[in-house]
Amino acid sequence: MLHSPARRQLLALGTALPWLGSRTAHAEADRPGLHGMLLFGGLEGLYASHLPMFHSPHDVQVLLRLRATEAGLESQVRQRLARGPGYLTLEPERFDLNRLQPGHAQALGGFQANLHESHFERGGPLLRPGAAWAVDEVLLFNRLDPRPHQAAQQRFFCFGQGQERFLVKWLEQRPDIDLVGRFQSRTVGAPRRLLSLPGGGLQAPQPQRLQAALQSAGLTPKTALQWLYQETGDLT
């Protein structure tokens, strides 16, 4: 089960971002399967983003704050990701993705997963088999709409700890692009934000437009934004 501090953080975020706060558990089809995840982060913490598709059981965008329960592995992974570039992926044991939904009666508190360099389904080398990962917080649980449609804007969830800040595109059109980026902020401990940029499309936003949106949200970057992951092939 999610610990109460993590749940309080989730509910507090939901107050500011109604699209997340409205996600409560209800009866629906199970989503059992092998749910691969992008692993990213740095010295301040680790995050995992489910690699989604527009068909069940992978039709949910899920973002987690998590940690390796083995202290040595946690430190190694944080340092590896902080150096960049590149990314890691997790190949977890099979589980029902719905158990990561906030409020689920059998909420998933952790799982075993193989750790891979780059994409495990595209030849990414195995770095560590069967490591244990604890879910500290569910940041996003967004069911995908499978109907072909285009959004009038691109929205990005901005979060992080310390000066490390990350951007994850909220998936809300089909086809879509999965984007995860990183930058250093001049503001330490800035609150989470949902940024909106006009125009949809399947490309990363123009740097100048994104820079202006970040500054308007009080998140003045200290370093240039680096896109860690871009994927359109799984979201057609």
Results as ranks from 00 to 15, higher is better:
residue 1 M to W: 11
residue 1 M to D: 12
residue 2 L to S: 01
residue 3 H to V: 11
residue 7 R to A: 04
residue 7 R to S: 06
residue 8 R to Q: 07
residue 9 Q to V: 01
residue 12 A to W: 05
residue 13 L to T: 02
residue 15 T to L: 12
residue 18 P to E: 05
residue 20 L to P: 03
residue 21 G to A: 10
residue 22 S to G: 09
residue 23 R to L: 07
residue 26 H to T: 10
residue 27 A to I: 07
residue 27 A to C: 06
residue 28 E to Q: 12
residue 29 A to G: 10
residue 34 L to Y: 04
residue 37 M to G: 00
residue 41 G to H: 05
residue 43 L to H: 15
residue 44 E to K: 06
residue 47 Y to D: 04
residue 48 A to T: 05
residue 49 S to M: 03
residue 54 F to W: 11
residue 56 S to D: 01
residue 58 H to D: 00
residue 59 D to W: 00
residue 60 V to D: 01
residue 64 L to I: 07
residue 68 A to T: 09
residue 69 T to M: 01
residue 70 E to V: 03
residue 72 G to K: 02
residue 72 G to E: 10
residue 79 Q to E: 14
residue 79 Q to R: 13
residue 80 R to I: 03
residue 83 R to N: 03
residue 83 R to L: 07
residue 87 Y to K: 11
residue 88 L to Q: 15
residue 89 T to P: 07
residue 89 T to Q: 06
residue 89 T to F: 12
residue 90 L to N: 03
residue 92 P to E: 06
residue 93 E to V: 12
residue 96 D to P: 09
residue 96 D to Q: 10
residue 97 L to Q: 01
residue 98 N to E: 15
residue 99 R to E: 03
residue 100 L to T: 08
residue 100 L to F: 04
residue 101 Q to S: 15
residue 102 P to H: 10
residue 103 G to Q: 14
residue 104 H to M: 02
residue 106 Q to S: 13
residue 107 A to K: 04
residue 108 L to H: 00
residue 110 G to R: 00
residue 112 Q to I: 04
residue 113 A to D: 09
residue 114 N to M: 05
residue 114 N to H: 15
residue 115 L to R: 03
residue 119 H to P: 04
residue 119 H to K: 06
residue 121 E to L: 14
residue 122 R to I: 08
residue 123 G to N: 14
residue 126 L to K: 04
residue 127 L to M: 12
residue 127 L to Q: 14
residue 129 P to V: 11
residue 132 A to Y: 02
residue 134 A to K: 00
residue 135 V to H: 00
residue 138 V to P: 04
residue 140 L to Q: 13
residue 140 L to V: 10
residue 145 D to T: 14
residue 146 P to D: 06
residue 146 P to E: 13
residue 147 R to C: 08
residue 149 H to W: 09
residue 151 A to H: 11
residue 152 A to T: 13
residue 157 F to V: 06
residue 158 C to T: 00
residue 158 C to G: 01
residue 160 G to D: 00
residue 160 G to H: 01
residue 160 G to K: 02
residue 162 G to I: 05
residue 165 R to N: 05
residue 169 K to R: 15
residue 174 R to S: 11
residue 174 R to F: 03
residue 181 G to P: 02
residue 182 R to W: 07
residue 182 R to K: 12
residue 184 Q to M: 10
residue 187 T to S: 13
residue 187 T to F: 13
residue 187 T to E: 10
residue 189 G to D: 02
residue 192 R to K: 01
residue 192 R to Y: 12
residue 193 R to W: 03
residue 195 L to H: 12
residue 197 L to I: 06
residue 200 G to Y: 06
residue 200 G to E: 09
residue 204 A to K: 03
residue 209 R to W: 04
residue 212 A to W: 12
residue 215 Q to S: 13
residue 216 S to C: 04
residue 217 A to E: 08
residue 218 G to T: 15
residue 220 T to V: 15
residue 222 K to E: 14
residue 222 K to G: 12
residue 224 A to E: 15
residue 224 A to D: 13
residue 225 L to K: 14
residue 229 Y to F: 15
residue 234 D to H: 13
